[in-house]
Simulated scan of single mutants.
Amino acid sequence: MNQSTRAALVAELTQLLAGGNAHVTFEQALAGLPAPLRNQVVPGVPYTVWHLVEHLRLAQADILEFCVNPRYVALDWPADYWPDKTLAVDEAGWQATLHAIAHDQQRFTDLLNDPATDFFKPLAHGEGQNILREALLIGDHAAYHIGEIILLRRLLEGKYSPHA
């Protein structure tokens, strides 16, 4: 891959990981969320906003670990990818999670920007996965759950309209 094509691919993947384009970013989805709503349950919904945010942290961290650690050991699904549904988050825990998400996102972006990173080479310890696939997975997964966060916020804040 020539340098120009590589730079364009890195730019597109970085933009995907930052969010936006066709939807709001992770940061926009959480902006102004009142702290009490982080742990508020919506009847019939199996998770809170906090659970979704923590799930995003856990999944992104696992994908990053898979990409950079040749001794990676797979986590148990779904237990290791979701927080205990009986737990609530306090301010310190919330901030720690947001910091960890941003930190791991930067680490993955650094991996993409590393000239030694081969986007298409299968990871030796995987089953055909490569860095490009994992970057797309992070972006796709985040977009899905950001949509859920937006919907939960609308329900919790009373802003849901079936006509909106």
Rank of each mutant, 00 (worst) to 15 (best):
H99P: 00
D140C: 06
I131F: 09
G126W: 09
P70H: 04
F26W: 02
A116L: 08
D118M: 05
P83I: 12
H99Y: 12
Q106L: 14
Q95V: 06
F119M: 08
A116D: 07
L87T: 15
V68Y: 07
A74Y: 05
V49Y: 06
P78F: 03
T97K: 12
L87E: 09
I63H: 00
G139H: 07
H55W: 04
T117N: 10
H125N: 04
L111R: 14
E127W: 11
A22D: 05
Q105Y: 01
A116S: 14
A116V: 10
F26P: 02
Q105M: 02
A102W: 03
R107L: 13
C67A: 15
I63D: 00
G20W: 09
V45K: 14
P46Y: 06
E134L: 14
N21A: 15
Y47K: 11
E134Q: 15
D140G: 12
A88D: 12
T109R: 06
P34L: 06
E134T: 09
L75C: 03
V68F: 04
D110S: 11
G32E: 01
G126Q: 08
T25W: 11
F108I: 01
F66G: 01
D76P: 07
Q28R: 13
P122W: 10
H51L: 04
L64N: 00
L98K: 13
E127T: 14
I131Q: 13
Q40G: 03
D62H: 02
A102Y: 01
G126K: 11
W77T: 06
L75I: 03
H23N: 13
Y72R: 13
N21F: 13
D84S: 06
N130W: 03
G126M: 06
Q106N: 09
L52Q: 11
P83S: 07
K85F: 13
L58S: 00
F108C: 00
N69C: 09
A74R: 15
H55N: 02
D110F: 07
F66K: 14
H23A: 14
Q105R: 15
L112Q: 03
F119L: 15
W94K: 06
H125P: 04
G126P: 07
V49R: 07
W82P: 00
H103W: 14
G44V: 11
D114W: 09
L123G: 08
E127L: 04
Q60E: 13
C67G: 09
V53W: 12
R107S: 08
D90H: 06
L64A: 01
G19L: 06
E65L: 10
Q105N: 07
E91T: 14
N130Q: 07
G20D: 01
P34E: 01
N130S: 02
D76C: 08
L87Y: 10
Q129L: 05
D114C: 08
D90C: 05
E27S: 13
